[in-house]
Simulated scan of single mutants.
Amino acid sequence: MNMQLAVPEGEEVPDAWHHQLIFGVGPNAVYMTNPLDVGNEGEVHQRLCSESVLLIRREDVLQRLTSDTTLSSLSDDQSDPRWKALDVEGQVRQMIHEEDNDDEDLHRMSHLVIPAAYSSGVTFFALRDSDLGQELLHAPDLPLAMK
Rank of each mutant, 00 (worst) to 15 (best):
E11M: 14
E41V: 13
D60I: 03
Q4G: 04
H19V: 15
L54Y: 06
S75N: 13
R58I: 01
R64W: 07
V53K: 03
D68Q: 07
V61N: 04
Y31I: 00
T69Q: 07
I22G: 06
S72V: 09
L74P: 01
H18Q: 14
T70E: 13
Q4E: 05
R58W: 01
S67N: 11
L5H: 04
D77Q: 11
E9R: 09
T69C: 12
Q78S: 06
P35Y: 02
H45N: 15
T70K: 14
C49I: 11
E41I: 13
E12C: 08
D77T: 09
D15Q: 08
P35I: 03
S75V: 11
T70S: 08
D77I: 08
G24W: 03
C49E: 10
Q4D: 03
S50V: 02
S67H: 09
V25A: 10
N34Q: 06
L21P: 00
Q78V: 06
T69R: 09
Q46V: 14
E41H: 14
L71W: 03
R64E: 11
Q63L: 09
V53F: 03
S52K: 04
S75K: 10
S75G: 12
G39L: 10
T69E: 08
D37R: 00
Q4I: 04
Q63M: 12
E51V: 00
F23C: 01
L21N: 10
V13F: 06
S75C: 13
V61Y: 04
N34Y: 06
P14N: 03
S50P: 00
L71F: 04
P35T: 00
L74S: 07
T70F: 14
A6D: 08
G26P: 01
A16E: 13
V44T: 08
N28Y: 11
E59I: 02
W17T: 02
G10P: 05
L62F: 09
A29T: 15
L55W: 10
P14K: 03
Q20H: 12
I22P: 00
D37I: 05
S75A: 11
S50A: 15
N34I: 00
L71M: 00
T69I: 09
G26S: 04
H45D: 15
A6N: 08
L55C: 09
M32V: 02
P27L: 07
R47Y: 10
V30R: 01
T70H: 12
L48G: 06
E41L: 13
S52P: 04
S75R: 12
T70N: 12
V53M: 01
V38W: 01
